[in-house]
Amino acid sequence: MNNFVQFFTISLCCIYCLLTSPLQAKWMAHNFNVMGTAAEIRFYQPALMSEQQAQRLLVKLVDVMHQIDESMSPYKSNSELSQVNQEAHAKPLKVSADLLSVINKAQYIAKLSGGIFDITFASAGHLYQYREHIRPTELQLAQASKFINYQDIALDEKNSTIHFLKQGTKIDLGGIAKGFAVQKCLTILEQAGVEHALVNAGGDTGLLGDKLGKNWMVAIKHPRQPDKQAALLPLANEAISTSGDYERYFIEDGQRYHHILNPRTGKSAKKLVSVSVIGPDAMMTDALSTTVFILGRSAGFKLLEQFSGYEAIVIDNELNMHFSTGLVAN
């Protein structure tokens, strides 16, 4: 074999190896703040995904979460949600597909829970300022609570509009929007061919697959000792959301005022201190953890029976931990 033929043959072999050998896979991760909380995205780069593609995917996911925040934050005066709260009482207001989808799901859970999950809690909720230790007077609360009623929201899916039937109605998606953001990111990851991923936003975590043959270990915070864990759960390919009375609160005269309000009273729910719901969809676990928190252990566990694949771990006021039927059986 002459030198030219030998060189040509070796070159072809090298090109073939480059084309057929998988690209080096690795974990991609990013920690950032969004939606008023710490967030994390972590995924295992598929073998045939280039470094550039993986970086672009990571940037896209972060952008998606920021876009949802810009749209659904009640604290940003120019957000789509703020516009709804300002204008939807006057006339039907056209909204984005994402916002309509989240409100529609919230209304679905409101109906099944008998109004316990109710995004119009914000009609009274906006009167609380937890950092400043401000709460409404009984008179202010009584007046504002008249506008807490999910049935005063008129949705038109065909025309993508929302209309408040009463002036004074306000909505807040704090009990469902982060779960929606997590689930949307998981969908994008799955469509991109990713098989192992974690997306977290505050108390909401979504998992795609496992951690390369091992379960993901997800911690539940201790509700009264911030540096400790109440439980460490081995999970894979599911979501978990935790609602607790220890995230946004203040204590006055020995009483804890926190952000999870009972829509029937406009006051902080008192039956539990922490609820974690596990299930297949992060938006649902987010909303259901809030709902079970307000209902309490017995009624909350009974409600979960309506939702196949969803289970809960609750911590009561004496810091005892309780498990729903499906978890006890397993």
Rank of each mutant, 00 (worst) to 15 (best):
5 V>L: 14
5 V>H: 12
12 L>D: 09
13 C>H: 03
13 C>W: 04
14 C>H: 14
16 Y>Q: 13
26 K>P: 02
28 M>R: 15
30 H>L: 07
32 F>N: 09
37 T>W: 07
40 E>C: 11
40 E>P: 08
46 P>Q: 04
46 P>Y: 01
49 M>W: 09
49 M>V: 11
50 S>R: 00
50 S>I: 06
55 Q>W: 05
57 L>W: 05
58 L>V: 09
58 L>M: 15
66 H>M: 11
72 M>Y: 07
72 M>P: 05
73 S>V: 02
73 S>D: 02
75 Y>V: 01
78 N>L: 07
78 N>I: 03
79 S>G: 06
83 Q>G: 09
87 E>V: 14
88 A>C: 05
93 L>Y: 05
94 K>E: 14
99 L>I: 06
100 L>Y: 07
100 L>P: 05
101 S>T: 15
102 V>Y: 06
103 I>E: 00
106 A>K: 10
106 A>C: 15
110 A>C: 13
110 A>D: 06
119 I>C: 12
122 A>Q: 11
122 A>S: 07
123 S>D: 01
124 A>Y: 11
125 G>R: 05
127 L>E: 09
130 Y>G: 06
135 R>Q: 13
139 L>K: 14
142 A>S: 13
146 K>L: 15
147 F>R: 03
150 Y>N: 02
151 Q>I: 06
153 I>H: 00
154 A>Q: 08
154 A>F: 09
159 N>I: 01
169 T>Y: 06
178 K>I: 08
181 A>N: 10
185 C>H: 03
186 L>S: 04
188 I>K: 11
191 Q>R: 02
191 Q>I: 05
192 A>P: 11
194 V>A: 06
201 A>E: 03
204 D>L: 12
205 T>Q: 00
208 L>K: 08
209 G>W: 04
210 D>L: 01
211 K>W: 06
212 L>F: 00
215 N>F: 13
219 A>G: 14
223 P>C: 03
228 K>Y: 11
233 L>G: 03
234 P>K: 10
234 P>F: 02
234 P>S: 13
236 A>F: 02
237 N>Q: 11
238 E>F: 02
240 I>V: 13
241 S>A: 15
243 S>P: 03
243 S>E: 06
245 D>Q: 05
245 D>L: 06
246 Y>L: 01
246 Y>C: 04
249 Y>T: 06
251 I>L: 13
255 Q>F: 14
256 R>I: 00
259 H>S: 11
260 I>T: 03
261 L>Y: 08
263 P>C: 05
263 P>S: 04
264 R>V: 12
266 G>S: 06
270 K>H: 13
273 V>N: 02
276 S>P: 03
279 G>Q: 12
279 G>M: 08
281 D>E: 15
281 D>A: 15
282 A>T: 05
283 M>V: 08
288 L>Y: 09
289 S>A: 12
293 F>C: 09
294 I>N: 03
295 L>K: 14
295 L>T: 12
297 R>N: 10
297 R>Q: 15
298 S>A: 14
302 K>F: 02
303 L>Q: 12
304 L>P: 01
304 L>G: 01
316 D>S: 04
318 E>I: 00
318 E>L: 03
320 N>Q: 14
322 H>N: 00
324 S>F: 04
329 A>R: 13
329 A>P: 00
330 N>K: 14
